[in-house]
Nucleic acid binder design. Sequence first.
DNA 1: GCGGTGACGGTCG
DNA 2: CCGACCGCCACCG
Length: 124
Amino acid sequence: MKQPTPAQLKILRVIDRIPRGRVATYGQIARLAKLPRRARLVGQTLRNMPDEVLVPWHRVVNAAGRISDRDPRDMRRQRELLLAEGVAVSPTGRIDLTRYAWKPAPRLASRRQGRWPITPLYAT
DNA sequence: GCGGTGACGGTCG
DNA sequence: CCGACCGCCACCG
């Protein structure tokens, strides 16, 4: 990734909000970034991520509650970082999502710019 | 432009 | 709980 695309930026901003001690899935991140069905893009974004981009990449796991398969070095590293912040990883490499999944507080609706009603209240 | 390639995910046996 | 399949879709040769 030389330059992140706009979509990749949105993804990075979401990952940046994952709190310590919690995890989020690729699909969840995509949805939060308003990019449904683009879970793979989340993976691709992290794959080519230079180290100097400081995002908590280790808090991203797959929907099975597992660390996604790739270079074993990086997988062990991810497990380390998770354990270090209190996320239990079972001997079989499992993370209990019912317990550690990040549940973001609902975003407040962004301020509207237009001066017109959102819905055509008197449309008839 | 086209097709192969994934740090994915839902479904099914 | 696997593993196999398959749909998905942005990137990159």
